[in-house]
Design a protein around this nucleic acid. Structure first.
Lengths: 339, 339
DNA sequence: TATTTTTACCAAAGCGCTTTGAACAAATTC
DNA sequence: GAATTTGTTCAAAGCGCTTTGGTAAAAATA
């Protein structure tokens, strides 16, 4: 069942039916109701591609995951996007996904732009110097960055959490508890978020007259295994830290394993603070002892990014949004006074 | 730059240019080369929607995640789909994603079908009785199920791993090692894969004259927390099992926490076998002791499902594929003789 | 040389929708 | 009562591509 058939069935022109369904004012109330009813009765849906061709709008958003599998933003992605698809669907937008392929992200963007496949994209996991931003600008493709990119002159739309502030406060909390030697098990510091976190950590130490010892920090993949390895390495040092700050719950899983294995007690021998993205499968509160965290819902961020992106697509003249979310520091049982 | 402009620039008709680019035979070698070169030079890409409207093919595949967040197939999804997008891209297909929305899956399928948005869908996480299959049949929408659905008369395309066999062999291995009381921490048994695993477990026990004690089994979300809770509950029983079989690595993370907390030694006091989907962030081999697993790459499965789906889309008359993958039982350090 | 086949190209129709410009009737204003 | 405005409707063009049904020139056949 297509528009023409529906129109013929209703004894109306396709024009009128199209307008009735799309809520244009120049159509009588009676006919509008009649059209709506029959359309529903026949289960009529306009052909997506015809509509897109006619309007010039793709009504789709692109999510392109990095080609390099080792970058591992994966475990977060499902949650990040699951909040978003509902927002898009409410506006009649689809989500197109390209994940971990051979083709690099910028090529995918070019393909999207030239084929008119999407009206905008979400940029995930921005690096310190990220070529994607300038590529997207050149393509005139609307986008919102989840995170920020340093060292760029041009303005761009972003939503980020205050990674700097979060780790600053986490470090400060530990210092206030008497810890003087604090380890950091960070994500890959090529990523802006991890870079910001380290800065927060270092500045907090410096503000209290302490200095960061590279021996007790690390930057790497946020896997359970790496959490285990790094925390073990750091806690086996002669002058071992009394506290660790970790970039993700997966790192914590590994760290707890190492700590248990070494016979140390969390919250007594070694305090732990980690960043918690609110992933449903790894709960900070239910750990024993429950975990002190810097918390921010990645799902909520995904949802909000979707709204922001729709905003700049619908009104291209609107100012580019910048949102910096403060991060909750939730003190639970894994942090205690320095031994 | 569109076809017409490119054609004018080349002093050719749009017809010829289109045919040249799409590899049709009725075009001279010299002109073909000329067209290809100029197209590349101008970065010409056919408009996706125009092509789709003209051909009647969406050149897109739909992935619809369950609306119910509690079902938690999420942590696997990124990996499952990341293997697939490359396969699709190689055939010029896009991936459309709808995740965790208010709208139930069948409604999304209807929307896809009526709007012609996708040429096929992948059905994820099939339940014991799954209404999606019949809905898709009614819509004449090609699909491949990752997993199987019981109790259906109609034939359908699927790729599944041998969950029954995997847990049968895992259980048998433990029995052979002298274990007589073996716990099972399973996924939600509303899912077919978890149902099959329990069957494998129960039949293996039965074959050796043992019977499953409901007290030492559980069926629930595959979260770290649930792994912790259930293993703790089961291991605190008066007559405690000497081995546990677990449905996922996340459950293992929780179980290890419980086991450490109770002062038990893995591989000595309690043996562990878990199913490993090969998620990059949680590595079975690197645990201490390394974990005995039933292993199957969810990424490889995702890739293969993509190939199968493309197969039945490209040739609708082809027979519906059914692939049952055997699961590797990899014996490592977490399994030992019963104490 | 005359006829058929092949090769290389093109004009035009069509995919299903939206949107522009026009038309007609009814309601309002002068 | 004539002129204008308003409210509803429609015919037709157009979005950018593919594809059908040609045609003219070149090559092969008779």
């Amino acid at each position: 069942m297509n528009l023409k058939e529906l129109a013929k069935h209703l004894n109306l022109s396709p024009t009128t039916v199209s307008r009735a369904l799309n809520g244009y004012p120049e159509v009588g109330e009676a006919t509008r109701k009649r059209v709506d009813e029959e359309a529903r009765r026949f289960g009529y849906r306009p052909n997506t591609h015809a509509r897109r061709l006619a309007t010039g709008r793709a009504h789709a958003i692109g999510y392109v995951l990095p080609a390099d599998k080792s970058l591992m933003i994966d475990p977060l992605f499902s949650d990040f996007v699951s909040g978003a698809t509902d927002v898009y669907a409410a506006h009649g937008f689809d989500v197109m996904l390209h994940a971990g392929g051979q083709e690099d992200e910028i090529s995918v963007y070019q393909r999207y732009a030239q084929g008119g496949s999407v009206d905008g994209v979400v940029v995930l996991g921005p690096r310190l110097r990220d070529l994607r931003i300038e590529a997207l600008n050149a393509l005139h493709m609307p986008y919102v960055v989840h995170g920020r990119v340093g060292g760029l002159d041009s303005d761009f739309a972003w939503l980020d959490i205050d990674n700097y502030g979060a780790f600053y406060r986490a470090t400060k909390l530990l210092i206030d508890l008497g810890h003087r030697r604090i380890g950091l098990i960070n994500g890959l510091e090529d990523f802006n978020y991890a870079h910001d976190r380290r800065r927060g950590y270092e500045v907090a130490l410096h503000d209290r007259g302490l200095k960061a010892d590279p021996m007790v920090t690390s930057s790497g993949l946020m896997t359970e295994e790496n959490g285990y390895r790094q925390s073990k390495r750091i806690l086996q040092l002669g002058n071992r830290p009394t506290a660790l700050i970790l970039g993700s719950m997966l790192l914590v899983a590994g760290a707890m394993r190492a700590i248990n294995e070494m016979g140390l007690i969390i919250g007594r021998d070694v305090s732990l603070i980690a960043h918690d993205d609110g992933l449903p499968f790894l709960n900070a509160q239910s750990l024993v002892p429950s975990l002190t965290t810097t918390s921010s819902s990645i799902r909520a961020a995904g949802e909000r990014v979707a709204q922001l992106l729709l905003g700049i697509i619908i009104d291209p003249d609107a100012e580019l949004p910048h949102e910096l979310w403060t991060v909750d520091l939730i003190v639970r049982g894994s942090t205690g006074p320095a031994p």
